[in-house]
């Protein structure tokens, strides 16, 4: 069902965990549909210096979470906002069709984290 790259990210996920005092947090999904992803970011000079995730979900949910963290580390916030769910799925070499909608939300979680950071930063100004 899943290709080797997806399975690699599922069995050996990158950047799992939580950080203390993250600069931005984003969470998407819903326990009712079975996938919830939480992404935390640390921002320095408008770049994503560090990123962590925690995910409740299926193989695709965990693999896409891992992949998005790998893709955006070191990018500017604007560049990271350009990374879409589609980008993540492509970077994984594709996902089974039934997983494209329900379990491919990791980029959305990241975007929420960036928006969270930006709104906090705007409020602090």
């Amino acid at each position: 069902m899943y290709n080797d790259k997806v399975m690699d990210h599922f069995f050996n996920p990158r950047n799992v965990g939580e950080m203390e005092n993250p600069d931005g947090v984003g969470q998407v999904g819903n326990p009712i549909c079975g996938d919830v992803m939480r992404v935390q970011i640390r921002v320095k000079d408008n770049r994503i210096e560090d990123v962590k995730f925690k995910t409740f979900g299926c193989g695709a949910a965990i693999a896409t979470s891992s992949m998005v963290t790998e893709l955006v580390k070191g990018l500017t916030l604007d560049e990271a906002m350009e990374v879409s769910n589609k980008t993540v799925a492509e970077a994984l070499g594709g996902l089974p069709p039934q997983k494209m909608h329900c379990s491919n939300l990791a980029a959305d979680a990241l975007h929420e984290a960036i928006k969270d950071y930006r709104s906090k930063a705007a409020a602090a100004r």
Partner: peptide, 23 residues
């Protein structure tokens, strides 16, 4: 579970809903 967005401590949160559902 170490990887999961949920744990015993988030139970009330889960039951209360309130997550953004982007379905």
């Amino acid at each position: 579970r170490e990887m999961s967005a949920f744990s015993a401590s988030t139970d009330s949160e889960v039951c209360g809903g309130g997550h953004k559902n982007v379905q």
